Simulated assay, not measured.
Amino acid sequence: MTLRTARRSSLVDQVIDQLKGEIAAGAWGLGAKIPPEPTLSETLGVGRNTVREAVRALTHAGLLECRQGDGTYVRATSELSGAVRRRLRTAELLEILEVRRALETEAARLAAGRRTPADVARIERALARCEELAGGDDRGAFVEADLDFHMAVAEATHNRVLIELYRDFGEALRASITAAVDRLDQVAVPHASLAEAVVAGDAEAAERATLVCLDAVCRSLDGVPPG
């Protein structure tokens, strides 16, 4: 960990900032159990009441989840992600896919004009993973590969706001898509055409390929019409 001894007057706020920093940096991944209260108190050099207040604040914000008798776990990586996750619990799958369509079509268009050789390499690795898992029995792994592929495209935009939005939305999206994965025809999702368009620098083709990709998802899910 990279936690430092707290010295500012607002100890609770500083502890909150440091815990949020550890979560955002990936020191404690999504679903991970954070160190117990005594450990955090000793590491930060503050009282246990200060740690308890900070954890309570982050729990209220949706970043942490306290499980009685078990410990405290990372529930989201940012306040936005926590808020989106809470909202998506009651959202219809069609609503979720419509938002995904808006984010991913713009991401594809921008990525086609801004991708670097490193971005291309990551997109191609993610595509290979999707193709490897398509049609297999491990549908959960396919969902992860699918989201990683689209995250690679989003990161190729080099738009920090869009990347952060997609990362936060992707965490919430994962649960919704996983819930429907038994009905998803993985082979029908044409990731390759999107990758080819981005690599070729063709923004219009990348946008069209994204729409085709998401329409394939919609068609394979009962009751969800394509846009």
Rank of each mutant, 00 (worst) to 15 (best):
E95P: 06
Q68W: 15
D138E: 09
R52T: 01
D119C: 11
L19C: 06
E104H: 12
V12H: 11
D168T: 04
E22R: 14
G170N: 03
L40S: 03
L11K: 10
L103M: 04
E171T: 05
T72C: 04
I163Q: 07
A188E: 07
A32G: 00
A32Y: 04
G71N: 10
A195K: 06
A156N: 02
E124I: 06
T210Q: 10
G45W: 08
D70T: 04
A24H: 06
R85H: 13
V217D: 00
L162T: 14
L44Y: 02
T72P: 06
R67P: 00
P36Q: 10
G170L: 01
G140F: 08
D13E: 09
D146S: 14
G69S: 05
G69A: 05
D137L: 06
D202G: 09
D215T: 10
L64Y: 15
R52N: 03
C213A: 12
A83F: 09
L80D: 13
V15P: 00
L184Y: 05
T157G: 02
V199F: 01
V55A: 01
T105D: 04
L93W: 14
Y166R: 05
R109G: 07
A121M: 06
A25Q: 04
G227P: 15
A83T: 14
L19G: 01
R101A: 02
L110C: 01
P226M: 12
G82P: 03
G223I: 15
E207K: 02
V161G: 13
L165I: 13
H60K: 02
L30C: 06
R183I: 01
V153L: 00
R109M: 12
C218R: 14
E22W: 04
A126D: 04
F169K: 00
S9P: 13
H191C: 02
G26I: 08
R219Q: 03
L11T: 04
A118I: 09
A107M: 14
L19P: 05
F142S: 00
V120K: 05
D185K: 15
